[in-house]
């Protein structure tokens, strides 16, 4: 079971975390909702719970709860620019189909 993030994504996360002294890392997760079943969660993690697994990549702690991990195993988090818009992107090998925008998905 593993989660990775690209160097570019890590650099951005590090920059954001610098201004937040009480955040321990980045939380990735999934929850049920949205137009196509599942939706991604991407949050600052202020707490690490007993259910959580912690991965580390390029100096950034990535925190995932064990339930979400089933859907996210093998995911790579990337940071990309599309025109003026920029943000994080989940490269998730488990996804079978996603809604048009990709914000929610099925496994």
């Amino acid at each position: 079971m593993t989660i990775t993030l690209t160097e570019k994504a890590a650099d951005h996360v590090k920059k954001f975390l610098e201004s937040r002294s009480d955040s321990k890392g980045l939380r990735l997760g999934v929850r049920t909702s949205g137009c196509s079943g599942m939706a991604y969660v991407l949050e600052f993690a202020d707490k690490i719970g007993s259910e959580d697994q912690v991965f580390e990549g390029h100096g950034v702690k990535v925190i995932v709860d064990s339930k979400s991990l089933l859907y996210l195993d093998g995911t790579e988090l990337d940071f990309v620019k599309e025109g003026l818009n920029e943000g994080f992107k989940f490269n998730n090998p488990n996804v079978k189909d996603a809604c048009g925008c990709g914000e929610s998905f099925n496994v």
Binding site: V13, Y40, L42, E43, D46, G87, G102
Partner: peptide
């Protein structure tokens, strides 16, 4: 896919 931003916890 849509690009995501990091949210506040919860």
């Amino acid at each position: 896919m849509a690009l995501l931003q990091i949210s506040e916890p919860g």
